[in-house]
Design a protein around this nucleic acid. Structure first.
Length: 728
DNA sequence: GTCAAACGCTTTTTT
DNA sequence: AGCGTTTGAC
């Protein structure tokens, strides 16, 4: 360990060997914070003799946790066994299962994901006779989530108007219903854990004592509930070691509150603050660009990012005609790089919204290149996958009404809405949950069964199936339970029609089965918990050697040799949903900052002059306001786009925002050439590319396109009216 | 209860 | 444009 520490720079060493007590590591991007955290854990165990089981380390994703665990093991071996290492949600899950006696739910609670939440909220709205248009399930849930992240209970929900009043009511109802389903949502995991620590001094004592040292990564993205949990745990010993960077706070919309940094300094006295500024990742040009973007944000501590590495290449800004061309240009560029011998996994393409991945995927397919797409939706959002997980959830917790309603007629077995409602009526009368009263139907001669008539028989058949599965869940392995469900429901015939999609769907089922196999030794509960808590980054197939596509959010904490950030248009980055709010805009800027700082060697930004709207039509775009904050001298522009036929840009669009002065300079004169000004063989000079020879020139869309061969840059296609080409 | 056609709405980011 | 949901026919 001692000799390993010598590999660190002095700041990092200071951070790793910091004395116990509250410690705040302010770490710029690429400054080795993951390294510092892993070394710190190793240091605690092997130098300070802290037993592994007295350490709690919280990361942002499960993948980060896994990596950290692996690295610590590499450093100090099996001594590290027993650390509690995971995301807030997985750690809380662990605590909650242990202390379920203190909860309004049983140990077998399930976790409701966004979809389940929405189904439940829709049901509640229906029952409350509230209109889904006025009370959008999504926004009601967002309000509830925001409250929970701030540890606000339904009773204390702040009300300004009638609408809020209703939301408050829905909040209370929603909580009741979750309990009735023996379920909790993501936020509840934090809220309940905090309540256990807050309401039971004994628990605070037990866990505070157990976790002698608490380490937290990505602290800037913790919300208040998470902070409160940490504060409660570290109350006695104050050994809270947090790492963060306010400039990389990108989850405000999810309740993240970078003021936790201030709270931390205030609540714990004598916080030792250590700065990590030296960057080991990027070239100086990338760092300079990142700084000039982020420095436009106010209310932050200015940091100087520096590297002892190279200056690096200029950034490239590609301006394409439309989003399809944008995607094509990026993919072609990557293809060329791979052909010239670069490793495919050096490349990453980042974008603001998931929808943007589509054109890119198409471009990759056109080129016959494989790619890695980060995003949980890809697999776990599939209907067939969710269906089967719903069966397993129901088996585990029959009180889960959402899963019951989802599966009871799946594949269709003649149990319609009405039948379910009559069962619900029976359940209500006996004060049982839907699932419990369903299971009662397995008893022959049950009066409820008789009252249901023929529908009762159908229900009873499903009930007997469910009962058998529940017994199998105890007696058999997870995979044989899975197989049983698929067989008993004849799920294969249901989804595997002759179509190609049918085949795909069945393959998804098989893929899910292989995931099930991984939990064979652990069991149903662990499997379901893992399914509920999979993060997007967790789905990144690490073995595939291919370019990665991911959102800017998902890119946090990662690094790549060559990064493309696409879609640098107004309304996309910054996103249209953030344009009215100063704080939201600042966050969009941080998002770009995070993206820029992922690049180690080469950064390319792209934008398209026209883009398909989510609506299907094409619309003209405006350049992202962030582009003008890049140091002009560090950017090399590649204009592929043709000047706009109807003038560029349109005046009216501009008045919406302040007219960016820099744009005026790039405006295109609209005089249409009749003859080509350039002829093959002409010697020309270009501001960036230098000396070149014209290969060809032709009129296209009323404008002259010149192909020029430049020394050292190769063949370039240029728009004559735009590229300032000088004839020699 | 099921199927198909019309309808209408959507996408910001995710543990 | 494409999807999920509602509507209407059997």
């Amino acid at each position: 360990m001692d000799n390993l520490i010598e590999l660190l720079n002095p700041q990092q060493q200071r951070a790793v060997a910091a004395p116990s007590g509250p410690t705040l590591i302010l770490a710029g991007p690429g400054s080795g914070k993951t390294r510092v955290l892993t070394y710190r854990i190793a240091y605690l165990i092997s130098v300070m003799d802290v037993p592994a089981w007295n350490i709690l380390a919280v990361t942002f994703t499960n993948k980060a946790a896994r990596q950290m665990g692996d690295r610590v093991t590499k450093l100090i071996g099996p001594q590290s066994d027993g650390i509690w290492l995971g995301t807030f949600h997985s750690i809380c899950g662990r605590i909650l299962r242990r202390e379920a006696d203190l909860l309004p739910v049983t140990r077998d609670f399930v976790i409701f994901d966004a979809d389940d939440q929405e189904s439940l909220m829709k049901e509640i709205l229906r029952e409350s006779n509230l209109d889904e248009k006025t009370y959008r399930p999504y926004s009601v849930l967002a309000a509830i989530s925001a409250a929970k992240n701030d540890l606000i209970e339904p009773e204390n929900f702040l009300v300004n108007n009638f609408h809020d009043e209703q939301v408050k009511r829905l909040f209370a109802l929603y909580q009741q219903r979750l309990v009735r389903n023996n379920a909790m949502d993501f936020d509840d995991m934090l809220v309940y854990t905090n309540r256990i620590l807050e309401d039971f001094p004994m628990m605070r004592e037990v866990y505070g004592h157990k976790f002698q040292h608490i380490l937290v990564d990505e602290f800037q993205d913790t919300n208040y509930a998470q902070y409160s949990i940490l504060r409660n745990l570290a109350r006695q010993h104050g050994n809270l070691y947090v790492v963060g960077d306010e400039d990389q706070s990108i989850y405000r919309w999810r309740g993240a509150d970078y003021r936790n940094l201030e709270r931390f300094k205030k609540d714990f006295r004598n916080v030792e603050v250590i700065l990590l500024e030296q960057n080991y990742r990027s070239t100086q040009i990338i760092l300079d660009s990142a700084m000039s973007v982020i420095n436009q944000n106010s209310n932050r501590t200015r940091k100087k990012l520096f590297t002892k590495g190279t200056t690096g290449d200029k950034l490239r800004l590609i301006i394409a005609e439309d989003d399809r061309e944008e995607a094509q240009l990026v993919v072609t560029d990557i293809r060329d790089g791979i052909r010239s011998g670069r490793n495919p996994s050096e490349y990453a393409i980042m974008y603001r919204t998931n929808a943007q991945s589509r054109v890119l995927e198409e471009a990759f397919r056109r080129e016959g290149l494989s790619y890695r797409l980060v995003g949980a939706q890809r697999f776990y959002g599939r209907k067939e996958v969710r269906d089967l997980i719903a069966f397993l959830r129901l088996i585990y917790n029959p009180m889960d009404e959402i899963s019951l309603r989802r599966t009871i007629n799946l594949p269709p077995r003649g149990i319609g809405e009405k039948t379910v409602e009559s069962l619900a009526a029976i359940a209500n009368q006996s004060g049982l949950s839907l699932g419990e009263s369903l299971l009662e139907l397995t008893q022959p001669g049950n009066p409820a069964l008789i009252s249901l008539g023929r529908n009762g028989e159908r229900l009873a058949r499903f009930a007997r199936m469910l009962k058998a599965w529940r017994e199998a869940a105890f007696a058999e392995s997870l995979s044989s339970l899975f197989d049983r469900v698929v067989l008993d429901t004849e799920y294969e015939t249901y989804i595997r029609d002759k179509s190609e999609e049918g085949q795909d769907r069945w393959e998804n089922v098989l893929e899910l089965r292989s995931v099930v196999m991984e939990y064979e030794t652990q069991g149903l509960q662990e499997f379901l918990e893992a399914m509920a808590l999979v993060a997007d980054q967790d789905t990144l197939p690490e073995t595939l050697d291919a370019p990665t596509m991911l959102t800017l959010h998902a890119a946090k904490g990662l690094e790549f040799e060559r990064v493309y950030i696409v879609g640098l248009d107004e309304l996309l980055l910054p996103h249209s949903r953030s344009r009215d709010d100063e704080e939201d805009l600042a966050e969009e800027r941080r998002l770009l900052y995070v993206g820029i700082t992922r690049a180690k060697r080469k950064l390319t930004l792209t934008r398209a002059m026209r883009r398909r709207t989510p609506y299907g039509t094409y619309e003209d775009t405006l350049p992202s306001r962030f582009l003008k904050d890049l140091p002009a001298g560090l950017v090399q522009e590649d204009f592929y786009a043709q000047p706009r036929r109807n003038g560029y840009p349109r005046e009216r669009e501009f008045s919406k925002w302040e007219r960016p002065s820099w744009l005026r300079d790039t405006r295109v004169p609209l005089d249409k050439p009749v003859n080509t000004r350039f002829k093959a063989g002409m010697q020309v000079r270009h501001a960036t590319y230098g000396h070149g020879v014209v290969k060809s020139s032709k009129l296209e869309h009323g404008d002259e396109t010149v192909e020029v061969y430049f020394e050292g840059h190769g063949l370039k296609a240029l728009i004559a009216s735009m590229a300032k080409l000088e004839i020699l």
